[in-house]
């Protein structure tokens, strides 16, 4: 689904990704982990074409993404910080994205699932962080795309919404979709992901299933395994 070869990216003098290789197969849930500033978001953004790599090739569904934009038709993206144009109302935002994507969507079902009906006529600037994140989720899931990228999807969600999100991820996975997720909530990662990728100093430090990780670090607890990996 996604191939990354020898990816390099510097921000100013600060190298973030230094020769990263990654291959993500279709139909599974990938978690990208790593300490703060390890390049998780940068990796995601290079895949989306929001960050331009200094070097390296990225292919999504077997075609290189450099200077392309149409491949994003196949991607749903949930950005890390759910900030939207404050002037718009929730419904207008949804309509706008639909208008831009020009794809069939099933937002009604998602709105109901996250209980957003009372907020549809409110301006985005007046929503709480959690509600905004729910809108964010609706936007990320309303189109039927083979690749879904979630950057910190659990931010600000209440427990009920978190459960709904997990259900949603599993439902979509069942339809054969591929996920790329970053999160700091290890419990969430452990529950949903099939495979994890651990980034450190701009490279992949570990790639494999959670069990492999536990075995490798000789820890029984995932959270501890993660903590141990960088010293391993």
């Amino acid at each position: 689904m996604i191939q990354v070869e020898n990816l390099h990216k510097k921000f100013g003098k600060n190298p973030v990704l230094t020769g990263l290789d990654l291959n993500i197969h279709a139909g599974s849930i990938f978690a990208v982990l790593g300490p703060n500033g390890s390049g998780k978001t940068t990796l995601i953004k290079t895949v989306l074409g929001m960050v331009i790599p200094d070097k390296g090739i990225i292919s999504v569904m077997d075609s290189p993404v450099k200077n392309q934009w149409k491949y994003r038709q196949q991607i749903n993206y949930l950005p890390q910080i759910a900030n939207f144009p404050g002037n718009l109302k929730v419904l207008e935002l949804i309509e706008m994205i639909k208008d831009i994507r020009q794809m069939p969507s099933d937002e009604a079902q998602l709105i109901a699932r996250f209980g957003l009906e009372p907020f549809l006529d409110k301006k985005l600037s007046n929503l709480s962080g959690g509600t905004k994140q729910k809108v964010n989720i609706v936007l990320a899931f309303m189109f039927n795309c083979p690749l879904i990228i979630l950057d910190e999807p659990t931010n600000g969600l209440d427990p009920l919404a978190l459960i709904r999100l997990k259900e949603l991820i599993f439902e979509e996975k069942a339809k054969g979709k591929t996920f790329l997720i970053t999160s700091h909530i290890m419990q969430f990662v452990e529950e949903v992901s099939d495979e994890v990728v651990y980034l450190l100093e701009g490279k992949i430090y570990f790639k494999g299933s959670i069990n492999d990780l536990k075995v490798k670090t000789k820890q029984t607890n995932f959270e501890h395994a993660i903590a141990a990996i960088s010293t391993y």
Binding site: P79, F84, P85, R101
Partner: peptide, 16 residues
């Protein structure tokens, strides 16, 4: 002010 809007759009299938 429209940084968020821009970022939202950048992830959409639109030319930069």
């Amino acid at each position: 002010n429209s940084k968020e809007f821009t970022e939202l759009l950048l992830a959409q299938p639109i030319k930069r």
